[in-house]
Simulated scan of single mutants.
Amino acid sequence: MPTTRPNGSLYTKTEGNVAIVEFGHPAGNSLPLELLERLKNEFDALSGREDVHIIVLKSEGEKAFCAGASFNELVAVASPEEGKAFFSGFAGVINAMRKCHKLIVGRVQGKTVGGGVGLSAACDYVLATEAASVKLSELTVGIGPFVIAPAVERKMGKAALAELTLAPEQWKSAYWAKEKGLYARVFDRISELDKEVAVFTEKLASYNPEALAEMKRILWEGTSHWDELLRTRAEVSGKLVLSEFTRRALERFGK
């Protein structure tokens, strides 16, 4: 059963040399700050485990993969400091995924919005269903996907980032996301997705762990400045969320 906990849930189980990290939240698997912190800490912990060769990132249920940041927490931001802390949640997770010594395979079963797209982009390889359409809706409320943009651009390119960002009310299909490089493979049904995730990660985990770690390092070359970059982006977002435009937009969305 999907979680009913207001701060969400996070569970990790290990099958052979594969660690499966599953997060959940009753609001479309959105990510409040507490859950983002737990995700960050989990990636940090798994990075150092010798028995773990591969990590799978998934979310609960059969509908949305991730609805992005917590709307309630976004509305509650009352100062630039609180705003920076709020947006730093995704910065922390993306940087933890980037620096994790283990390759991360994303299992995306449904729609993903905003920060959820950033989470997918920070995975090293993503398997998805045809229901896994994507959208970056931030401009509709007067902010932008500034924190996650480096991860999205790295995976999909600046043109795809612009296409998503500047059409913030438009869903892009899973096949579009595959064509742009976000997803490696797309499946018709969740049952097919789960079967392939199990087969693919078991095979991947059988390879030399030192070679896997080196491949991870190569994939993320040129991103060592992201700690500072994403903090700066979080500060920009934290200020914008207090603008009159954004306050009015959030009130409309909350009705």
Rank of each mutant, 00 (worst) to 15 (best):
T165M: 10
G142K: 05
A149W: 02
S137A: 12
L139Q: 10
A128T: 10
P145Q: 12
E130T: 03
S137F: 07
S137N: 02
V141R: 11
I143P: 06
V134C: 11
M156R: 06
A159Y: 06
I143F: 10
K158A: 12
M156Q: 09
T140G: 12
S173H: 03
E153Q: 14
T129H: 05
A151G: 01
S137Y: 05
A159L: 14
A167V: 11
G144R: 11
A167S: 15
V152S: 02
K135F: 02
V134N: 00
F146P: 03
V141M: 08
K172L: 07
T165N: 14
E130F: 01
E163D: 13
V141N: 04
L127H: 07
I148R: 13
E153R: 12
V134E: 02
M156C: 12
A128I: 03
G142C: 00
L164N: 10
V147Y: 03
A149V: 09
P168R: 04
V141G: 02
K155W: 05
L161A: 08
P168K: 05
Q170S: 14
K172I: 05
A159F: 04
E138A: 15
Q170H: 14
V147F: 00
E169Y: 11
A162K: 15
L127E: 11
P168I: 10
R154G: 02
Q170R: 15
A131V: 02
R154N: 06
V141L: 08
L164K: 11
A167Q: 15
V134W: 00
G144E: 09
A162M: 13
R154A: 01
A149P: 05
T140F: 07
L166N: 14
T129K: 06
V141K: 01
L161V: 03
L164T: 12
E138Y: 06
E153I: 08
E130I: 09
S137W: 01
A131D: 05
P168H: 07
I148H: 09
A151H: 09
M156G: 08
A128W: 03
E163W: 03
I148M: 12
A167H: 15
I143D: 02
P145I: 09
Q170A: 14
T129D: 05
A131C: 09
E153H: 12
S137D: 04
G142V: 08
G157M: 10
A132D: 06
A128L: 11
G142T: 05
E130K: 15
V126W: 02
L164C: 11
G157D: 03
T129S: 08
A160L: 01
E153N: 10
S133E: 03
A128R: 04
L139I: 12
G142F: 07
E153M: 09
V134P: 03
G157Q: 02
G142Y: 07
T165G: 09
V141C: 11
A167N: 15
S173P: 05
A160T: 08
T129I: 04
K135P: 11
A151P: 02
G157N: 00
V152Y: 10
L166P: 09
S173W: 01
A149E: 00
G144T: 05
G144D: 11
E163Y: 00
T129M: 10
E169N: 13
I148V: 06
